[in-house]
């Protein structure tokens, strides 16, 4: 709640600069500030539904690391194997679901597709991993944050940067034309023409 109030205040600050400040460059900053307040709000709220970045390899590695801490180095290797196999199938995500069987299946499949050297390890490690996956299930559900707001805001950020660049170029030309950064003065000088 407190962070949203802070964002709201930030937004109002930016808006006050746009409306109240006379300097055009500061007005452009104000536009930037309100844009960023909206972007942060969207991303922040969208990130409250999960606890992991929306990148699923990280998910597998995290699962592996958790398993590793519980059952020795096996889990880490399993994660590595899953990564080495290169081709990510939904099955590789299965440790995230926390079920032991599919975790084993994942390693079996991943190492089958992966380099031969890794395949030999799998048999020894399956037991450890099963243990690790159990402890992972106890750690609480693994879930990623909502990736949609992040993708949308990526677009909004780029658009905001473009608008800022164009606005600054216009402000530069206006300064060259009128010799002032004061918006009222610009209006007065330019609308003086017949």
């Amino acid at each position: 709640m407190i962070e949203r109030i802070a964002l709201f205040v930030l937004f109002l600050l930016g808006f006050a600069v746009i409306v109240g400040h006379k300097n055009v460059v500061k007005k452009i900053f104000g536009l930037n500030i309100i844009n960023n307040a909206a972007v942060i709000l969207f991303v922040l709220e969208g990130a409250k539904v999960g606890n992991q970045a929306p990148i699923l390899t990280t998910g597998a590695a995290v699962a592996g690391a958790a398993a590793g801490s519980a059952g020795g180095s096996g889990g880490a290797v399993a994660g590595a194997v899953a990564q080495m196999s290169g081709e990510v199938t939904p099955v590789a995500l299965a440790p995230a679901a926390g079920t032991v069987d599919s975790a084993c299946a994942a390693i079996a499949e991943a190492s089958g597709a992966g380099p031969g050297a890794a395949a030999g390890l799998t048999g020894d490690l399956a037991g450890n991993v099963a243990e690790g996956a159990n402890s992972l299930a106890n750690l609480g559900a693994f879930s990623v944050v909502d990736p949609v707001p992040q993708a949308l805001m990526l677009t909004a950020i780029v658009i905001g940067v473009c608008i800022t660049a164009l606005a600054l170029a216009l402000a530069f030309r206006l300064y060259k034309a009128t010799g002032t950064f004061d918006i009222d003065e610009m209006y007065r000088r330019i609308h003086h023409e017949p």
């Binding site: 929306p54 699923l56 390899t57 990510v88 909502d146 990736p147 992040q150 993708a151 990526l154």
Partner: peptide
């Protein structure tokens, strides 16, 4: 989010779900 978590990689091929979107 749930749809992307379950199907995103299969449908787009990218593990980075933001890239997928």
């Amino acid at each position: 989010r749930n749809h992307l978590e379950d199907q995103g990689v299969a449908e787009s091929g990218a593990q980075n779900l933001v890239s997928a979107v």
